[in-house]
């Protein structure tokens, strides 16, 4: 049962179209798992619909309707086929994230960060000057992430298993959000490995004594 939802601000940014790509993939993936947030976003989209309906009408070019009607029989551009995903991938990764990653979980090239924690960095299309990062993280049960805080905003969506930190306990579907006011030290739950999708606007800042781990989320 999902209990930790994205903030209203994040949902509004998503509905209005103001999120960079990686963060919008994270929100869309949460929506696939959370009927309550889908309803909230439907309501925010309705505001968009009402604003659109109320815009002063602008002159469309002459012949626009004819050009439009002439295009109705156009064949849609072929959609590039996605790989056929295996059962584990279909179960763990919601569709928006699955198409973003474009491969099976078993084919992900995990890179060890610290003992018990692995990372797979995803290319970010429009991280912009903020230097956003997007990555999958996998924690072995009991694995501890060094204590850290963030310069910008971080959002983590849990996909499998769970983790606990100072702010709470998070399981599949939950979104944990943090910023520079939050210092935390996540620990993987016992049981199956915890897999998360994490998006950061800016690099993490280590607050513990482990300066060597500065590279933790940056690679």
């Amino acid at each position: 049962m999902t209990i930790s939802h994205p903030t209203d601000t994040l949902l509004l940014d998503y509905a209005a179209g103001g999120l960079a790509e990686a963060m919008s993939v994270l929100v869309a993936s949460h929506l696939a798992l959370c009927p309550a947030c889908r309803r909230a976003v439907d309501g925010l989209d309705a505001i968009g619909g009402a604003l659109l309906a109320d815009l002063p009408r602008e002159q469309v070019a002459e012949g626009a309707l004819d050009r439009m009607l002439a295009r109705l029989d156009e064949m849609p551009a072929p959609i590039p086929p996605l790989p056929s995903f295996d059962g584990e991938t279909l179960r763990v990764l919601p569709a928006p994230l699955r198409s973003y990653i474009g491969r099976n979980l078993a084919e992900v090239e995990w890179r060890r960060l610290v003992p018990g924690i692995e990372q797979y960095k995803l290319p970010v299309a429009d991280g912009g000057e903020l230097g956003a990062t997007a990555e999958l993280l996998r924690f072995r049960p009991g694995a501890k992430v060094p204590r850290h805080t963030h310069v910008g905003e971080e959002a983590i969506l849990v996909l499998q298993g769970g983790f606990t930190d100072e702010t709470g306990h998070y399981v599949r579907g939950d979104v944990a959000q943090g910023d520079e006011t939050v210092t935390h030290r996540p620990v993987g739950d016992p049981g199956e490995p915890c897999i998360c999708f994490a998006v950061l606007d800016e690099p993490v800042r280590l607050t513990g004594p482990l300066g060597w781990a500065q590279k933790l989320f940056r690679g």
């Binding site: 798992l33 968009g48 659109l52 569709a95 994230l97 699955r98 299309a125």
Partner: peptide, 28 residues
């Protein structure tokens, strides 16, 4: 509005805006 917003975003991105798919096996 949803379609127009997505078209507008797609116009400045290489990849389409990800959409929730009700036929997704992971969909709740």
């Amino acid at each position: 509005y949803q379609i127009a917003r997505n078209k507008r975003i797609d116009s400045f991105r290489r990849r389409g805006r990800p959409e929730v798919d009700v036929n997704d096996p992971a969909f709740v």
